[in-house]
Design a protein around this nucleic acid. Structure first.
Lengths: 343, 343
DNA sequence: AGAAAAGTTTTTCGCGCGTAAATTTTTGGA
DNA sequence: TCCAAAAATTTACGCGCGAAAAACTTTTCT
């Protein structure tokens, strides 16, 4: 290992005795050069430890290996987990993922999309903010860059959508809860940021009507992404004002449920199915921590694996198809009911 | 708004009637061009909506505004939260942050550092994997790129370290627990990935010796980043084998504590200070979720604000100092004891 | 063996922009 | 009004690399 620093491909070409474009070909595909040439390059590589500048590489490339992954709020463990899986699979598929979080802010989401244009990505996996997204900006971005939406759908935007079937989530929890007890009330935020929340409420209403039961939708106040605190405050208010209309509460998502469980514990309401339990609580998402709540949370689980696999697969197909699909596809995955102690 | 797409600065210069380098100056600092020129550019900007390619900009820039932020495991809410704060402050300070997660893997950490060299960052904020880091690679990276370490210190590596004072964390929890009850035992992983864990154990031992009390360190098995599950399994084994040596458990970190609380609930051990409580549990970090555990978790809180502020400030100073400090500095922030229901 | 075909390497140019040096324009003072 | 200094703009070149076209080798087949 020599200690002379190689600053660029030109210098490395000089010390290895081969022209720069051949070196470039080697890094693009080591098998594309003659074995004898390859050996010379690799011998030089052992001595000088040079690696091409990845951004200069992409500057003039026809098709990069870059993939952008955008989530609305990375400090939400649900998105952290899905982002982790997507990144891993991207790398396995030979792509170079770059992760972005909009931190719940529209201007940041717009900035991210701008940055992504500069990155010249082969494709983008985008989970938009939802209600807070700047639709025009997202639309114009998707028109220029091959994009697969996930988690939150925006009708007609992007080449494809991969997500979860909210009706499957809610129908399974409602069915289970009614089968094993009283009909549930539905606990949600008044103005949810995520469009899935609206679909879940509609699914709840439809299921209740189908079963001939009276629905109770409880909307609590609160803005932003601090769902646990919003759920806790909302639940405290309700508990202190006489309690829920039924003794079974179905939460729109696990983070709200975590707050609700916390409030129940604080006020001494025991949650679960056993003797002496005042309330049963179920929810949706299978948040990474829902297994560790007290009691552990009964919930409808996303098929994280399938969603991540399908998103990457769809993106791969999209890229191989040249960035456009004949027609926009929507793939939804059913939920898996996870029975735990809370209901 | 015209619909002719401007592809680069050259084309924008043509339609605005000004030379490209002047346009370049404008985007670098709008005040650096004559007001009349600026007005002409901005008028053209309204018509043609062009934005420079950020990666081409950095290609030949002397000093970029890029900042790399690297964390060991982004799906850990502690790191998600600190990363969120760092990103926000970077943007406020006029930098362009890019976030990376090593996902707990050494090879990914190494790859990230390689990518970061290509990004030509003005500086990097690096929270290394710790025990799993490839010290040589990190060292060589820090020698080439101005780097501030945070969270996990690696002696002598990087220009500065910003983190929390583990002794302050442990001394406060131990002092509080002994003052209000029996001496605590210490609950930790057998082979912690993070060096802070070792410092916390040593602090516990020192504090117990200082107080003339017998220490009990309980080491549980488990590898990886699924701390909650590791804590839960370890606690279940201990509870089923007769319980903890004392009725006060001090956990090395909140994620282990979350697992322990879950195990206690499962086995019917009531945690807290009140009547009928079998155990008191305290911990360290003030994990975003620790407020919502059942019972809510007494813990020593990081000063997230101060750490994030100081890290960005130090990085700023480092960049303004040309990338090197006279001598390496280490800044540690004291903990703030947060009394909640678990102890 | 000789020429065409196939495979490699090199030449040349371009990506989108920054920057130092050269040129032009503006400003300010006599 | 004129000229030098200051400010603004333009010229010319470079960053690190990809890609098409040209030049050169090696293989293949008659």
């Amino acid at each position: 290992m020599s200690d002379t620093k190689i600053r660029n491909m030109e210098e490395f070409a000089a010390v290895s005795g081969i022209s720069r474009p051949t070196i470039s070909k080697y890094f693009h595909d080591p098998d594309s050069v003659r074995p004898s040439t390859r050996e010379r390059i690799e011998r030089a590589l052992e001595t000088y430890d040079y690696r091409p500048n990845i951004f200069a590489m992409n500057q003039n490339r026809k098709l990069t290996k870059n993939v952008g992954i955008v989530v609305p709020y990375l400090a939400d463990p649900f998105f952290a987990e899905i982002a982790r899986q997507l990144e891993q699979r991207c790398i396995e598929a030979g792509f170079r993922p770059t992760l972005f979080s909009a931190h719940g802010q529209q201007d940041l989401e717009n900035d991210i999309l701008d940055s992504l244009r500069s990155l010249k990505p082969a494709g983008v996996l985008l989970a938009p903010l939802g209600r807070a997204s700047d639709r025009k900006t997202v639309e114009s971005f998707c028109a220029d860059v091959p994009t697969v939406l996930f988690d939150s759908n925006i009708e007609g935007v992007g080449e494809a959508f991969v997500g979860s079937d909210n009706f499957s989530f809610v129908s399974q929890t409602v069915e289970y809860l009614t089968r094993t007890g009283d009909p549930p009330c539905f606990f949600e935020m008044m103005t949810p940021a995520n469009p899935n929340a609206n679909k879940r409420r509609l699914a709840y209403l439809e299921m209740m009507e189908r079963l001939g039961l009276e629905p109770h939708v409880i909307k609590i106040e609160g803005e932003g992404w601090a769902f646990e605190e919003i759920g806790r405050q909302g639940a405290l208010r309700i508990l202190d004002a006489g309690g829920f209309p039924t003794n079974i509460v179905l939460c729109s998502n696990d983070r709200l449920a975590i707050g609700l469980l916390s409030a129940c514990y604080e006020r001494g309401f025991r949650v679960g199915r056993g003797e002496g339990c005042a309330l049963r609580v179920a929810s949706h998402d299978d948040h990474p921590f829902s297994r560790f709540t007290c009691p552990s949370l009964t919930t409808a689980a996303h098929d994280y694996d399938a969603v991540a696999n399908c998103a990457i697969g769809t993106l791969n197909d999209l890229i191989e198809a040249g960035g456009r699909f004949q027609k926009r596809t929507e793939t939804l995955f059913a939920a898996r009911l996870v029975l735990r102690a809370s209901a």
